[in-house]
């Protein structure tokens, strides 16, 4: 019964839900001004050359040259960059946990 339910749920999540998550993440990336320092594919005006490009970020081995690239580490870096690299030019932007997770999922999907 439970298996059926999961299967039905899985099938009922159409592609647009994934698109909606991506749209939301792109909106957040714009709202936190990430694009003024980084290039980010498919995010309007994200053509900054201050920090490194985030193209293909999902394939990257390290975050900020220091942490292995996984979800939790990326959330931590987005929320509190100086806790990872005290000298980084990337400021603390006051990103909440939920928003950080949504942006991290999008960035890690870029290949």
């Amino acid at each position: 019964m439970r298996a059926w339910l999961i299967l039905a749920l899985a099938m009922s999540i159409p592609a647009p839900a994934a698109d909606a998550q991506k749209d939301k993440a792109r909106l957040l990336l714009r709202q936190f001004g990430c694009g003024s320092c980084h290039r980010i594919p498919e995010v309007a005006d994200a053509v900054g050359d201050v920090g490194p490009s985030l193209e293909k970020f999902g394939a990257r081995t390290y975050i900020a040259g220091i942490l292995p690239n996984n979800n939790d580490n990326l959330v931590r870096f987005i929320r509190d960059p100086r806790s990872v690299d005290p000298r980084t030019a990337m400021p603390d932007l006051g990103v909440g946990e939920v928003h950080a997770r949504e942006m991290a999922a999008y960035l890690r999907s870029l290949r």
Partner: peptide, 8 residues
């Protein structure tokens, strides 16, 4: 893809 791209 280990470190960042050096493009630009």
């Amino acid at each position: 893809p280990v470190g960042p791209s050096l493009a630009h």
